[in-house]
């Protein structure tokens, strides 16, 4: 017998952060929530540390990237019958204390996807210039394509219900960067998305997967292309006509 909610933590080379993240989660949420860490074939000793931390760990045989690890977590959650899933970053950016905020919003609005947003109420002045431009472009694209206003489509702090979870497990060619593209696709398929302001920290230690100009450019180009493909896929039947 397990809990209703599962926290999924995709993890790659986070030996310096993961211990603190798990400790924070256990301290704040206690035993009411299950945690699963998807170790994306880490090479820095994260795997050994996870064994010592006594947390459910799924170890991938080779590096699948963030999205592959995340989808593995979805598949685990779906197979084990969890009703809700929370994505949580292993780099220490997400705060365990904010989980309750997302759960409260879920109870209040019963949306399929709840996004913990850094910008729903406050500005986005902490991000780099390039990232600010990218995020605002993605927000505009979401508005144009779906008619919905999402302020922080790049946030990985998300709570999903079982129907959204099911959809995620069944997507073939799950996008390499599941951000604005996947949100657009979900909205176009009739899933409701609600955003809530949460506090977040800066990454504790190590480098982000989006660090460096080249990686950021690749990320933006991939995401724009992915959105374009989604528009092609659903045009004109589902644009502005959300049907599940």
């Amino acid at each position: 017998m397990h809990n209703d909610l599962l926290i999924i933590i995709p993890c790659f080379n986070e030996v310096h952060n993961i211990q603190g993240v798990i400790a924070d989660l256990r301290l704040v949420i206690g035993k009411d929530v299950d945690i699963v860490v998807i170790d994306d074939c880490s090479t820095d000793g994260t795997s050994k540390l996870l064994v010592a931390l006594d947390v459910i760990t799924i170890t991938l045989p080779f590096n699948l990237g963030y999205s592959g690890a995340l989808q593995t977590g979805y598949k685990y959650a779906f197979a084990h019958g969890y009703e809700q899933v929370l994505q949580f970053d292993a780099d220490g950016q997400h705060l365990a204390s904010e989980i309750q905020t997302l759960l409260n919003v879920r109870k209040q609005y019963n949306a399929d996807i709840i996004i913990g947003s850094r910008f729903a109420e406050s500005g986005r002045s902490h991000d780099s210039f390039l990232k600010r431009i990218a995020t605002s472009l993605f927000c505009k694209l979401i508005k144009i394509i779906t008619g919905e206003t999402i302020y922080d489509p790049t946030s990985g702090f998300q709570l999903l219900n079982r129907s959204a979870l099911e959809r995620y497990t069944k997507i073939h060619n799950f996008p390499y960067y599941p951000d604005a593209n996947i949100i657009i696709e979900m909205i176009l398929n009739g899933f409701s998305v609600k955003e809530v302001q949460v506090a977040m920290r800066d990454r504790q230690r190590g480098n982000s997967m989006h660090s460096g100009l080249l990686r950021q450019s690749k990320y933006m180009a991939t995401l724009f292309y992915s959105i374009f493909i989604i528009v092609l896929k659903y045009f004109p039947s589902k644009l502005h006509h959300k049907v599940r």
């Binding site: 760990t57 991938l60 045989p61 699948l64 989808q71 685990y76």
Partner: peptide, 20 residues
């Protein structure tokens, strides 16, 4: 190749889930 990569990824996920 892209179809095979997708299948390999799915197999890797399934393998990891079964191992767990």
């Amino acid at each position: 190749i892209s179809q095979l990569s997708e299948r390999v990824n799915e197999l890797a996920q399934r393998n990891a889930l079964l191992e767990q």
